[in-house]
Amino acid sequence: MTEYKLVVVGAGGVGKSALTIQLIQNHFVDEYDPTIEDSYRKQVVIDGETCLLDILDTAGQEEYSAMRDQYMRTGEGFLCVFAINNTKSFEDIHHYREQIKRVKDSEDVPMVLVGNKCDLPSRTVDTKQAQDLARSYGIPFIETSAKTRQGVDDAFYTLVREIRKHKEKMSKDGKKKKKKSKTKCVIM
Rank of each mutant, 00 (worst) to 15 (best):
D105E: 11
F78E: 02
Y64S: 15
C80G: 03
Q70V: 01
I100G: 00
N86E: 11
L113V: 11
M111T: 03
D69I: 01
K101F: 07
S65V: 07
G77D: 00
E107S: 11
D119F: 02
P121I: 07
P121F: 09
D105V: 05
V81E: 08
M111R: 01
M72G: 09
M67Y: 04
G75E: 04
E63L: 04
N116H: 14
R68W: 13
G115Q: 05
P110L: 03
Y71I: 15
V81F: 14
C80Y: 14
D119H: 05
L120A: 12
D119Q: 04
R68H: 15
K117N: 14
V114Y: 00
R73D: 08
V109F: 12
K117H: 14
A83D: 15
R73A: 11
H94L: 10
E63F: 04
S122H: 10
C80M: 10
R102A: 04
V125Q: 10
F82C: 12
M72D: 03
T74C: 14
V125G: 11
F78L: 07
Y71M: 15
N116Y: 02
M111H: 00
T74F: 15
V114H: 01
I84F: 13
E76R: 04
D119V: 02
T124N: 11
E76C: 13
A83W: 02
D119G: 07
V103S: 05
V81A: 07
I100C: 05
L113S: 03
D126G: 09
S122P: 10
E98T: 04
S65N: 12
I93G: 02
Y71V: 15
T74E: 08
L113N: 00
E76H: 07
K117A: 14
F90V: 08
T74A: 14
F78P: 00
K117P: 01
G77N: 01
S106N: 09
L79G: 00
K104C: 14
Y96P: 00
P121N: 12
K117E: 10
M67G: 06
E76N: 05
I100W: 05
P121Y: 09
T74G: 12
G115F: 10
E98V: 01
E107L: 09
N86Y: 02
L79T: 00
I93R: 01
Q70M: 02
K104N: 11
R123T: 12
G115T: 05
L79M: 05
T74Y: 15
E63G: 05
P121C: 09
H95L: 05
E107D: 12
L79C: 05
G75C: 13
Y71A: 15
G115M: 09
V81M: 11
L79I: 10
Y96A: 05
F78M: 06
K104M: 13
C80V: 14
P110I: 02
V109C: 07
A83L: 01
N86V: 02
R73W: 07
D126Q: 07
G75A: 13
V81Q: 06
L79D: 00
E76V: 13
